[in-house]
Design a protein around this nucleic acid. Structure first.
Length: 560
RNA sequence: UGGGGUGUAGCCAAGCGGUAAGGCAACGGGUUUUGAUCCCGUGAUUCGCAGGUUCGAAUCCUGCCACCCCAGCCA
């Protein structure tokens, strides 16, 4: 299916391949996906996951799932559980390689002491504000802290005191002693440890000092044996610091950091902070609301993990900032579902059609293929009777040119059934069409040679008295603007991102859909919401619409 | 003249000195009992711009321009 166009190796795979060929790291490949458990994984993370796990797999290496849990208070187990579930769902397995930065706290502490002993770290009693002032600006160098030249002995003692809880939060920090005049801000004596007197989800009260990202991350990589440490572009500036730690500490491995650009999607906000805000301010129902770009949301909406991986593969890996069109993602899920989803009938907004020349209490069961191009998927029987339901949109009293559906005096084929002709319409007091009267041609029954006569249009339908009912949720993009900043949600949010159809009609075979994905013919792909559905009363999420070239033609027909 | 990056079609993206892959979108046409699927066809005299080197440059050099990231005791 997805093998016809496999892109050549991206620049990272090229580097890894040449490292392996050169015998670097003993020919070993090891990566890691290091999420901070402070939110849900989104489709941007899927890129990192596919890269980290994918590269390890392709080169016969290993990938670790390592939680970067260095900031207790912002992190929690509910997020680690969600992250584990999402990585598994996407199709990757860390096996026994589940670690946490906190697993290394004791080693990190030793390494911090090593830096102090070598005069490369010091305890700084400047206030946070003072540290900022002393750091200088982008264009001016910083100044040395007055505490920068404390003796090794004094630093050792002060650091031990920090660790014992003798200082209050914010009173002092441990800093690397590098270069306050460096043009790279990350090298202006970065903070290594800060005091946090809160319980950690895993280490409890054991520590009251916690390592900062650069220190913990670099050394976790080195301690764990990472060979290729892949991360996004904003850490490019951190690489000199990453390397500084490796140069100045006795570590067993020397990983290499390689940066790539994050994945961005049009009409989508990917920042974790904004996603959290969407949830907290109730713009959406939850982190897994099907309109969200989280993996949990895509799962609930009916996306397959295969389609997400295919999307990531097609999007590519470079260092260029990019914003990918929604169309590519939609194409990926349509392509996957077109191949695998069984077809069914559902009528979202029913309009009653009475077939006057069809016997009052007759009924027959017509054979309908589960997949038009895959006979091996079999068929099901759909009931037909005198009163049927069709889509309101499929009837127009005064249609534009090229309208191939039902209109006064016109004919359409009822898919897998008969050709019917509209004889008259019934209207209510307000002039709305409430019922359509048709006649049918018994000779045109599907199967039995009834294909002989051709008509322009074919529409889906349901026998009125046999139809079951369901709630159907139709989703549109969450943001109305192509490049949302997330700064003013009131302005940017699409007010019509969710449309709930309370009482759609569905064919009997759909009343208990289970975990299967379906195409509702001519409408799109649908998946029963695992959280909202009840036995006999499913709630279907529309995963994605079908491509709709009529929509364009209709526009032209109406405007031209 | 802070530092670090990036510029190839509407959106992605190959290309690594030998004469611009591919995907998505768009647009034509064919098949079709889903206006779906499927099939076939159509795009860059040009690679941010300007010079230079070379028999030959998207690829090398110089200059310029545009955009992104960095001043958390976040990651």
């Amino acid at each position: 299916m997805n093998t016809e166009t496999t892109p050549g190796p991206d620049f990272i795979r090229q580097i890894v391949a040449s490292d392996v060929a050169a015998g670097k790291h003993g020919g070993r490949v090891q990566t890691r996906f290091p999420p901070e458990p402070n939110g849900y994984l989104h489709i941007g993370h899927a890129k990192a996951i596919c890269l980290d796990f994918g590269i390890a797999e392709e080169f016969g290496g290993k990938c670790y799932l390592r939680f970067d849990d260095t900031n207790p208070g912002k992190e929690g187990v509910e997020f680690v559980e969600a992250i584990k579930r999402d990585v598994h769902w996407l199709g990757f397995d860390w096996e026994e390689r589940l670690t946490h930065a906190s697993d290394y706290f004791a080693r990190l502490d030793e390494l911090a002491i090593h830096l102090i002993e070598n005069g490369k770290a010091y305890v700084d009693h400047l206030t946070p504000e003072e540290i900022r002032e002393y750091r200088g600006t982008l264009k001016e160098p910083g100044r040395n802290s007055p505490y920068r030249d404390r003796s090794v002995a004094e630093n050792l003692e002060l650091y031990a005191a920090m660790k014992r809880g003798r200082f209050a939060e914010g009173e002092c920090v441990l800093r690397a002693r590098i270069d306050m005049a460096s043009p790279n801000m990350n090298l202006r004596d970065p903070t290594l440890y800060r005091i946090r007197k809160v319980a950690h989800q895993r280490t409890g009260e054991e520590w009251c000092i916690y390592p900062m990202y650069d220190f913990a991350h670099t050394l976790s990589d080195a301690l764990e044996g990472t060979t290729h440490s892949l991360c996004s572009l904003e850490f490019e500036d951190h690489r000199p610091l990453y390397d500084w730690f490796l140069d100045n500490l006795p570590v067993p491995h020397r990983p290499q950091q390689i940066e790539f650009s994050r994945l961005n999607l049009m009409f989508t906000q990917m920042s974790k902070r904004r996603l959290k805000q969407l949830v907290d301010e109730r713009w959406v129902e939850s982190w897994d609301d099907p309109r969200m770009p989280t993996l949990a949301a895509f799962r609930r909406r009916g996306y397959t993990p295969e389609s997400i991986r295919d999307f990531i593969r097609r999007a590519g890996v470079t260092k260029k900032e990019n914003v990918i069109e929604l169309g590519l993602l939609e194409n990926c899920i349509r392509e996957d579902l077109n191949e695998r989803a069984s077809r069914r009938f559902a009528v979202l907004r029913p309009l009653k059609v009475v077939i006057d020349n069809y016997p009052e209490d007759a009924e027959e069961w017509l054979e309908a293929a589960n997949h038009p191009n895959r006979p091996e998927l079999g068929s099901r029987q759909v009931p037909f009777s005198r009163e049927i339901l069709i889509e309101r949109e499929d009837f127009m009293e005064d249609p534009p040119k090229k309208f191939h559906r039902l209109k006064p005096g016109g004919e359409v084929r009822l898919r897998y059934g008969y050709i019917v002709k509209c004889e008259s319409v019934v209207k209510d007091a307000a002039g709305n069409v409430v019922e359509v009267r048709c006649s049918y041609d018994p000779a045109t029954r599907s199967g039995a040679g009834g294909e002989a006569r051709k008509v322009k249009g074919t529409i889906h339908w349901l026998s009125a008295r046999h139809a079951a009912r369901a709630e159907v949720r139709l989703y549109d993009r969450l943001f109305a603007v192509p490049y949302p900043t997330g700064e003013d949600l009131r302005e940017e949010i699409n007010p019509a991102s969710l449309e709930i159809v309370e009482d759609a009609a569905i064919e009997p075979a759909l009343a208990d859909p289970g975990d299967e994905r379906f195409q509702f013919e001519r409408l799109g792909y649908f998946y029963a919401d695992p959280a909202l559905s009840k036995p006999g009363r499913p709630v279907f999420n529309r995963t994605v619409t079908l491509r709709d070239s009529w929509a364009r033609i209709e526009q032209q027909a109406l405007s031209g």
